[in-house]
Amino acid sequence: MTALTHDSASGGPPRPRGGGVLGRDDLTAPAPRRPRRRTRTEVLLFVARHSIAIALSLMFLAPVVFLVLTSFMTSDQSLTSNLWPASWHPENYADVFTRTPMAKYLLNTAVYAVLATLFMLLSSVPAAYALAKLRWRGRNLTFVAIVCMMMLPPQVTTVPLYLMWANWGLTGSLWPLILPMLLGDAFSIFLLRQFLVTIPDEYLDAARVDGCGEWRALLRVVLPMARPGIAAAAMFQFFYAWNDYYGPLLYTSENESAWTLSLGLASFRSLHAVQWNLLTAATLLTMVPIMLVFFFAQKAFVQGVTLTGVKG
């Protein structure tokens, strides 16, 4: 997506490759060049901006706060319009695990997300490299096909693919969602390609001149340089798998032992007559791992979103 932000309208000197947004540590505006005295308007604007920002922050946060509060209530109270727990029940969180197969769902989700991510990297990094750094006939056409596939709503291919997996006896499990990752994921290929084109060719040429083959150029030179891009792609894939609902619904709905968190969560009410206090607790438990991953890898992730921002 950096490429997209280049625009003829900017007219400025071309930026060094790999610079721009990606090179920046933070997405905040650079500091003003020289200190100036603030005018009254500027102070007013400052206050206005921050009031809006704080108000927005509260609105973005409020849903989570209410969820947390409700998750500590009794079942009775969660059905009332009280906002604050009359008494605190942290045991609700333990109840979620004992009353529903939450632990099993968590494990399935983790297996799905981790394997899908690993497989995707194995297949998509080389493909992205070939699309970004090798010149061959049919490359543009292949790239167009990749973009088409990326943009294709999953519902379009649902029925034939379901039949295919059924034919292979793999429905009722998460494999129909994991195995295709060995054959490249369109979105990840696109994302990685966008990143790889920003790596200057001079580095590659050096490796090639040394007598390394293209594979060695990829492993020795490109991989270390593309680490942020790869991290971003991996994280997108991980998040996508973690959050996926349609895929598991389609392929595993009849086999509860293969369910993921999203699928389980959507069925808690009808299957386990779970009440709102437990449901909110389970909802929070589903969100937490994702948020943790985000906090540990915020930088790489923000870079990734910036780089493309297709699925996100």
Binding site: S123, P126, L131, L183, G184, W215
Partner: peptide
Amino acid sequence: LSFMAPALIGLALFL
């Protein structure tokens, strides 16, 4: 081909 084979099979099979 060694780079692209999996993705090309993927395109044929899933697109």
